[in-house]
């Protein structure tokens, strides 16, 4: 949702470690990242700073578990997007949320899933709600790599009342 990009980001966790030399901060233990309506849950979040002072967050889940993500979508009162994956990256500059390895994204209208996507690499531009699916977690399409599976639910006819 566009409005999210104006909001500040908060991160809650059990523990935090900052290395003054490399200026890398690591949040660990039930990490919850919130920015406006964007909410990401993970086990660990490593925040680094690029040269031009933009924050880059890499989130990883407990082994065997997954990261979960939920955000409101523009274009409707109750449109949401939800997702899980083993790893995710969030870049403050591009506002891209990249889901890597065994990623799954669901578009919801209220609580009904209108579109579902699975794949190795799913990248979601949370500023413009643009969505890209690629079959290798490096972000380049690899022939013979995993398959992207998209299921789009039929649009329910709005009864003209």
């Amino acid at each position: 949702e566009k409005a999210d990009s104006l909001k500040e980001m908060t991160i809650e966790a059990d523990q935090f470690l900052n290395n003054g030399k490399t200026n890398v901060s690591t949040f660990s233990g039930d990490v919850v990242v919130v920015r406006g309506t964007l909410k990401v849950k993970a086990e660990k979040a490593v925040v680094t700073k690029s040269a031009d002072e933009f924050q880059h967050v890499v989130l990883t889940a407990k082994p065997g578990a997954k990261i979960s993500f939920r955000q409101k979508r523009d274009g409707g009162p109750d449109l949401w997007v939800e997702g899980e994956s083993e790893k995710a990256e969030y870049d403050e500059k591009t506002e891209f949320v990249k889901f890597l390895s065994k990623a799954q994204i669901r578009y919801l209208d209220g609580s009904k899933v209108t579109q579902q996507q699975e794949g190795e690499f799913l990248s979601y531009d949370s500023k413009n709600d643009v969505f890209v699916g690629v079959n290798s977690s490096s972000g380049q399409s690899v022939s013979g790599g995993g398959r992207i599976k998209t299921t789009i639910q039929p649009r329910t006819e709005k009864q003209a009342n």
Partner: peptide
């Protein structure tokens, strides 16, 4: 190295 030990709440 700076370590925060519990109940961490960060506002970036």
């Amino acid at each position: 190295e700076l370590r925060l030990l519990s109940k961490v709440h960060a506002r970036l």
